[in-house]
Every structure is written in C-alpha cells, then in structure tokens.
Design a protein around this nucleic acid. Structure first.
Lengths: 299, 299
DNA sequence: TATTGTATATTTGTTTAATATTATGCAATA
DNA sequence: TATTGCATAATATTAAACAAATATACAATA
C-alpha cells in the first residue's frame, strides 16, 4: 500500500519560508545539498520537494545544475502553501473526531476498533490522531482497552483557561533573566504584522493567519531561552487552534491586534521589559474579554 | 511472543493506595467489581492484581467470596509497592538512554535501528521510551530518519529553568478565579508531610519520596481547576524526576521543606490566597537557591 | 441483590514480511 | 571545489497474522 508522502510537502513549505526570509530573487540557485543540510535531511526528499515546487511553477530545473527560483520571493503567492499536500499534523481526521465528539455522535468511551470501523482508517493513522488529541488533552487512554473523550478541553471554559494560563506565563517569560531578543527575528515579526494590517489578514487562509499570530507569541516567548516556557505556549496554541477551528473568525479585530503587537515589539526592542511585560498582560486580558463577548478572533 | 503484563502491577499499586486512603482494616472485603468500576477496567486485570497482592501476603482469598485485606492499612509496609513489577513509565531503558547520552556514549544523531541493535530491545519498547523522552524535551525526531538528542534538558541550567517556570505558574495557579481547595485532599497532604517530617523521609525510597513531594505541588495546582496549569506542572516534574535521578539526595533538607509545605497548606486552608501565593513563590525561590548551592534535594 | 466464577467474544500488543522512503557513496559535471 | 546525478544501502512505515490480555455475558453463590 502506498504510504502517504509526508516529508517532501513539509520541506516544500520550509523552502518557501526560507526563500521569503532571505528575500531571494528570481534565478537564485537553490542548492539541494545546502537545503538538505539546513533541514537535517538528505537530498532525496529535498529534490522531491523541489519537484513539487516546480509543478507549481515556483522553481525551474536545469540538467546537472539543479533548481533555480523562477520568480522573486515577493511574488510568490501566499496561497502557494495551501496548494501543497497537507502535512500530517493537519490530518482532517483530527478535526472530524473533535467535531463528532462535540456533537454527541460518539460515546464517551470507545475502542480503537470501533473508531477504525467508523472512519475506515488504518490503525496507524488513527493512533497518530489519538496521540495528538491526547497531547492536546481532550482524549485519554483508559488503563485497559479503549479511550475516553474529555469534555473539558473543548468547552468554552477552555478558552478562558487558555488565556488565563497565557497571562501567567507569557508576561513572566519577558522578565526571565535569560531573556534575549533577536533583532532579526523581531524585524521579521514587524514585517508580518504590517503585512497583516495592510489587508493581508483578508487574503490568507485562517489557518495561515492563526499560524502567524500564534507564531508571534511563540517567537517572543522563545526569547526567554527557557524551554519550559516555550513548550507550554506551543501546547496552549495547539489547543487554541482546535477551538478556533470551530468558531467564526472576526477579521475586523485584526488591525487593532496588529497595532498592539507592533507596540509590544517596540517595547521589547527598546529593552523596556517591565513595561513590555505589563503591556502583554493587558493585551492578553483584552483579547480574553473580547472572546468572552462572543466575538471570535485570535491573538 | 509474550507481552509484558503492565496493567495488573499498576492496579495493584492503585489498590494499595486506595486501601491506605480509606484506612481499611484487616478483613475488609475488596470487591473486584467495585475496584474495576473505580479504575475503569474489567474485573480480569483487577483479579490478577489481587493475586499479586495475595502473593505478597497483603490480601487473602476465599472461594466464591473474593478477596479480603489481610492486615490493617497502616501495617502495609511502604516498601510493598517496590516489590511489585515495575510499570512501564519506569522503564529502566529510559534512564539508561539518558545516562548513555550524558556520558557521551551516543552520538547526537541516531537511527532507531542503531538503538535497537545497541540495547537489543524490540522497536515497540524503544519507541515508547523515545516518545517519552520527546515529551520530556531531551530527544526530538529528525524530519526524515533518525532522532537527535538535545543537551539542553539535561544540563544544570534545566534545573534553574524548571524552577523559574514553576515560580511563574504555581503562585499564579493559586490566584486563579476558579481555584477551590478540597479539604479532604489538603488533610491528606498534611498527613503525608507529617509522616515525612517524623522520619518517613528516611524510610521510603527516593522515587516514592519524589512522587510525594512533587505530588503535593501537583495537587495544589490542581485546585486551580485549570488543566493548562496542572499539565504544565506535571511536565516540569517529569523532567525534574530525570534530573533528580542523577544527583545525590540530601534528605536533611526535608524537615524544613515539610514545615514550609505545612505552612503553605495552612494558608490555603484559610483561604488566604494572596499570602499563600507569595509564600509559595518564596518557597520555590529558596529551593532553587539551595539547588544552586549544589545541595541536591527536591521541593 | 450484589458479587463471584467461568466461558466466550473482543480488543489490542507484537512480530513478520513486504515495500516505500530516506541516507550515503562515488563518479560526473559545472 | 562544491554540487549534481545515480546506484546502492539502510531505514522506517505499513499491513497482515497471531497470540495474549481485556471485556462481557450469564449462571452460580453468598
């Protein structure tokens, strides 16, 4: 049985990111060897990824010379990423399972076999999804046979809990003695926020949108150089992605959110950490309040 | 091939815990059905667990009547738990892998097959251990083949990072609006601390000791009713268990630590949350400082 | 009436073998 | 001299089959 190619699509996305970050121009040589080293893989999957990009017209190939960028980095459509085969962590089964559980179409306790029959998926795929859901705290293994769905992480209260948790750790991360902001990374964040503010928020998919905004917080917390903080924020964001998937997205809140993000970045850039920390806490509190007002969105 | 029995030993431990919590007396009937319902399994593994306890002389069985406690709960030796077959999460391979990596006996990047050959274990067991190590943030999957060991979580800095993280979330958990202390659980914690203070800290194994002290913090944070806080603390503690495994344990610090824990419990019991939160932060800061003074221990 | 004992059914962990994917070494090329 | 192209080797995923553990149903017992 053919097994789903998962690595090349992922690499294709990484390559596009890399091209954008470097702002490469049309005609730039994309050395397979260099990319392979950069992404900790061999040239084989890199070449497969480049072939995918060639199909999209983003790169061209020349015999014995390799691949070359076919257009300037700015002109690569933001939708290009979505044309690529989905990577695993976006397995639709994950979301379908969550939906079915929420709508009472599944009993609290289920066996793996039941789920396999219900969705007619191989065990391997189901187990990955269940594992993922377990990490996201809405499914747990029973000690013996079977799994149990938990309501807690899919309830509206989970929104609040997530924000309360972020309000505890994100501002604290800014005050860590090991905190050190990377200027280049900050600059990149500024560019992204400006892009979103200038209408980009209406162009890209909600999934990409979430990735960008959640990514901002992850990058900033990452500056703390404390992996406990970084991983904790990533975990909250995985759950938030699930919750957001279910709510309608109010893109009108974005301009204000972007302004607040830019202000935050400025404070961090100046090294004004106490102020930045307090500002971040207020920012999160405000986002929580607008969520509570049943206005969906993200921060 | 025989698969290792993992559930019955786990259940045996849970049954002993249950007996201790209820303070059951010799002769009490241990209904297999009730235990099965309580632990979300069927009677089969419960009966196997009870047979294990019978071999230890902790329970006796009567034809057609089931199992009965053979001694008062207080007289069950604390070492009884250690006689039982180890549950999986204590797989020695996990610690051996960590040791070997720390001592430079493994290269940074390894393939699963290499490790399988090196330790001559089946892939299933290896994968569980690697998965575990990945959750504990000292191993990561490479995008293609192989795994990479990370130095960061095994370095001395990880101690500090862990405490800094706990100082951010544990005091905050006490201030959550959803915080609600369970009187019975608090009372149980008090008993445990008194037991430890009165010399118990010298009787039980270091593993049990760690479980008790870490458990105290997990229970208290659990009162926040916010699963993000609870899970985050559990995660830090898993890493701490690994770090503690390598250091010598200074049991002399325990009396003071227990006094501080009792004070903290008292403040929580009184509902004096602001003071309790501040006290907890100081307590953690003090524990961090004594760690930094290369005095091993736990809090 | 709840619990145990026992037989039967179901589920899941494990292993094996097949196969797609990834890694590597070396000659050819720019 | 670094990179590509290609052949070979190593690796890891998958499915299928088997066996052990767990769940369930029902009669027997206290």
């Amino acid at each position: 049985m053919a097994r789903q190619r998962v690595l090349p699509p992922q690499l294709a996305r990484k390559i596009i990111d890399y091209i954008r970050e470097r702002g490469l121009e049309s005609g730039s040589h994309l050395a397979a060897q260099g990319l392979a080293d950069m992404f900790d893989v061999s040239r084989i999957p890199v070449n497969t990824a480049l072939k995918l990009l060639e199909e999209q017209g983003i790169v061209t190939s020349e015999r014995n010379r390799g691949y070359f960028l076919a257009q300037d980095s700015e002109s690569i459509a933001y939708t290009a990423l979505e044309e690529l085969p989905q990577a695993f962590w976006d397995d639709p089964l994950y979301y379908q399972l969550a939906e079915d559980w929420l709508h009472g179409r599944l009993s609290e306790k289920v066996s793996e076999s039941e789920l396999m029959r219900l969705y007619t998926v191989p065990r391997s795929r189901l187990l990955k999804v269940l594992q993922h859901a377990m990490e996201d705290m809405w499914v747990e293994r029973l000690p013996g046979h079977g799994w149990r769905f938990l309501a807690v992480m899919i309830s509206p209260q989970a929104y609040v809990d997530g924000y309360r948790f972020r309000m505890a750790i994100e501002p604290a991360a800014l005050l860590e003695p090991t905190f050190k902001a990377d200027k280049a990374a900050l600059e990149k964040l500024v560019e992204q926020q400006i892009f979103l503010m200038k209408g980009g928020a209406r162009q890209i998919s909600r999934n990409e949108l979430f990735t960008l905004t959640a990514g901002l917080h992850e990058v900033i917390v990452g500056f703390s150089n404390n992996p406990f903080f970084t991983e904790a924020v990533k975990k909250v964001n995985r759950v938030r992605r699930l919750l957001d998937f279910r709510s309608t997205l109010n893109r009108d809140r974005f301009p204000r959110q972007c302004r607040e993000h830019l202000k935050l970045i400025e404070l961090i850039d100046r090294g004004n950490m106490k102020t930045a920390s307090a500002y971040l806490k207020t920012h999160l509190g405000g986002a929580l309040n607008s969520k509570l007002g049943f206005i969906a969105g993200g921060s």
